[in-house]
Simulated assay, not measured.
Amino acid sequence: MPRPLSVQLYSVRDEFAVDRAGTLGRLAEMGYGAVEAYDVTDDVAGLRRLADDLGLTVSGAHAVQLLTGEPGPVLDAVATLGTPLAIVPAGFPHEDFTTYDGLARVADRLGGLARDAARYGLRLGYHNHWWEVEPRLASHGGRPALEVLAELLDPEVFLEVDTYWAAVAGADVPALLTRLGDRVEALHLKDGPGTKDDPNVAVGGGTMPVPEVLAAAPDAWRVVEFDACAGDLLGELAASRTYVSSLEAV
């Protein structure tokens, strides 16, 4: 795959707070070729310098602040990182994903932000959790809310599908990705027991059908993430990288 495997820095938030340079260095040593930022208010110029020094690409940046304040400074920070992808990682009321009218409001807001992002040379995306997938809209054939949202979004808005949260919400993830098609620009790869509250395990060590997931969105960025880990986080990240890379080599 031409795009390097990325890791969401939220996974190492505790380690990052203590030693940014050392943590990024460990990820690079594991073989990750990219990182995804999660806090664009925290010295993005410094993060860009560290990533450049280590040969790491910034695959994207989560920017929930786009929903809470003036978008200009947030988009400028994303552009400073050198990535074209600004991603809204939730931030809307969960109730908006239970009705068509609510989904239309979400789509309208994201469309406006996408136009703002375009002025900075950026593309805007949305990242799901379970609550955008679990609701099924009876008015639309019982399809998951995220799928209905995709039809309402402006064409320039992409999706970063968190494959684990989609599975936890009851989706057949490979089938969902196939239906979403080119709308999917990035995947969050994580694994675990398939429950909402239990910690993640190394990708390939849980319930996720990872080969089928990757095959359903072959051109998407692959971004490994841990929301929580009960064991050795850095060891599990290394194991995740080894497993995903072995699938790409087949």
Rank of each mutant, 00 (worst) to 15 (best):
R3D: 08
L113D: 07
V223N: 10
D116K: 15
V213A: 00
E160V: 08
L176N: 09
T242V: 11
V203M: 08
G192C: 14
R179G: 02
N200F: 11
T41N: 15
A114H: 00
D191C: 10
W221Q: 06
V74F: 07
R179A: 11
A150T: 04
A230F: 13
R136G: 11
G60R: 08
V74I: 15
D198N: 14
I87A: 13
E15F: 08
L124D: 01
S11H: 02
E36D: 12
H129A: 11
Y126N: 00
G102N: 13
P89Y: 04
E132Q: 09
R26I: 01
A238K: 01
D101Y: 10
A239N: 01
N200Y: 05
R26S: 11
L176E: 03
V7D: 00
D108A: 15
W130I: 06
V244F: 02
G121V: 03
G69F: 14
D154T: 10
T242K: 06
L5T: 05
A169M: 02
V133P: 06
D76G: 10
S6V: 02
G33K: 06
R119G: 14
L110R: 08
N200S: 06
P218M: 11
A114R: 00
A117T: 01
W131A: 06
A114V: 00
L189R: 03
A79Q: 12
T23H: 05
D191V: 06
V210A: 12
T178L: 05
V173M: 02
D108Y: 08
L153K: 12
T99P: 08
M1C: 15
R123Y: 06
Y32A: 04
E236P: 07
E151P: 09
G235R: 08
E248D: 12
E70C: 05
T57Q: 00
L81C: 08
V35E: 05
P218H: 11
L247P: 00
C229R: 06
G125A: 04
A217F: 10
R109P: 13
G142C: 06
L113R: 14
R26H: 09
L149K: 01
D162R: 04
S240C: 13
F97N: 01
R241D: 00
D219P: 03
H127R: 11
L54I: 10
A79L: 09
V40A: 03
P93W: 02
A230G: 15
A167F: 06
L50G: 09
G194A: 13
V88C: 06
